[in-house]
């Protein structure tokens, strides 16, 4: 088993290195010069242009050859230094990301967990109730095929714009500042519902369909038939079927993570939610190399770690793989 884990981790490390290298390279292949963009936004007088250009070039390390920039990048990375944002100089990239991260997590984590839980439960229900199946299944197909951003726009238009039940944008009311108070919590929740729903509903559809099919498969399996032949109540058969069907769903969770994160980015932009999404858009529009790099690095690392955790956890929760790993009987 330890050999298996070691191999797994090695693969992840290699993936990480490759992904991070691509991440480093991407902004640099985008057309446009960030420093010149910065200078023209500064409306700097032409005399100052030259000085400022050389100052910023040196400050960002663009005056060294590309390969050296690459190595410096790794060196800084291991010190936890993601560099300074170009457009918000001199705010460190880490600071910008940490500021935005809680909002993104507030959307992502509940959306992923709740949609997984609810989608699986409803899918299992639909598998054994025809009427529910006839409504849940087509609805789930529609939901899972819907782009989160589009659903976000629809929700914003219907519930925020037209019906004025929820706010259109932001993470909390303008009169408030983030703090631990009931009023802030209320305002935060009020603003959170629509972007959360956009993510939740789409993911929910996917899980419901998957679970429904898996449950049907499990309920027709031999062990289910055997238990029924021995007179086991349907409750027990369903419990076993659900647990067994959950295993491939967990693997699916690891695969779906990347898609959910991407969806969260665009949903945030729709709702002007101050998370990584809006930060990313800003960074791309302004050619902020380091910020783009930093955000993508975060996302890559986050998804890889989550995948690794699920991979390792799976070994422990599925006895078949666990035993197989130990060289079973």
């Amino acid at each position: 088993m330890w050999r298996y884990l070691f191999r797994k981790v090695s693969i992840y490390v290699v993936t990480f290195v490759v992904a991070v290298s691509i991440d480093w390279a991407i902004p640099r292949f985008m057309p446009g010069d960030p420093i010149q963009g910065l200078l023209s936004r500064m409306q700097a007088q032409p005399q100052a242009s030259e000085e400022l250009t050389s100052f910023y070039t040196e400050a960002f390390g663009f005056d060294v050859p590309l390969w050296k920039q690459y190595l410096n990048f790794w060196a800084a990375l291991f010190q936890g230094d993601l560099g300074l944002s170009i457009t918000n100089y001199p705010i460190p990239v880490t600071e910008l990301i940490m500021g935005a991260l809680p909002y993104t997590l507030a959307l992502l984590v509940p959306a992923i967990l709740l949609s997984f839980w609810a989608g699986n439960k409803v899918g299992a229900l639909a598998a054994r109730r025809k009427t529910l199946d006839n409504t849940v299944l087509p609805m789930s197909y529609v939901l899972t095929a819907t782009p989160q951003m589009w659903l976000g726009i629809i929700l914003a238009w219907v519930f925020a714009s037209s019906l004025a039940l929820f706010p259109v944008s932001g993470a909390y009311g303008f009169a408030l500042q983030p703090e631990w108070s009931v009023e802030f919590a209320r305002s935060f929740l009020h603003h959170w519902i629509l972007p959360f729903s956009a993510l939740f509903l789409v993911a929910f559809g996917g899980w419901a369909i998957g679970m429904r099919n898996l449950i049907i498969y499990e309920l027709e399996a031999d062990y289910s038939n055997y238990l029924a032949s021995l007179g086991a109540p349907t409750r027990l058969v369903r419990k076993y079927a659900y647990r067994n069907a959950l295993l491939p769903q967990i693997t699916g969770l690891a695969l779906a993570l990347g898609a959910v994160v991407a969806g969260a980015i665009v949903v945030e932009i729709v709702f002007s939610y101050p998370g990584l999404g809006t930060l990313t858009l800003n960074a791309i529009e302004n050619r902020d190399y380091f910020l783009i790099q930093g955000i993508f690095l975060f996302l890559i690392t986050g998804v890889l770690i989550a995948n690794l955790v699920i991979d390792i956890a799976y070994v422990f929760i599925d006895p078949r793989t666990r035993v197989g790993m130990q060289g079973g009987a």
Partner: peptide
């Protein structure tokens, strides 16, 4: 079932829940 009439099924080799 199980108490008065019981069956050893044709698929006995896969009759047990693999994850339990």
């Amino acid at each position: 079932r199980f108490k008065h009439v019981s069956i050893i099924p044709q698929y006995a080799l896969s009759a047990l829940n693999p994850t339990r």
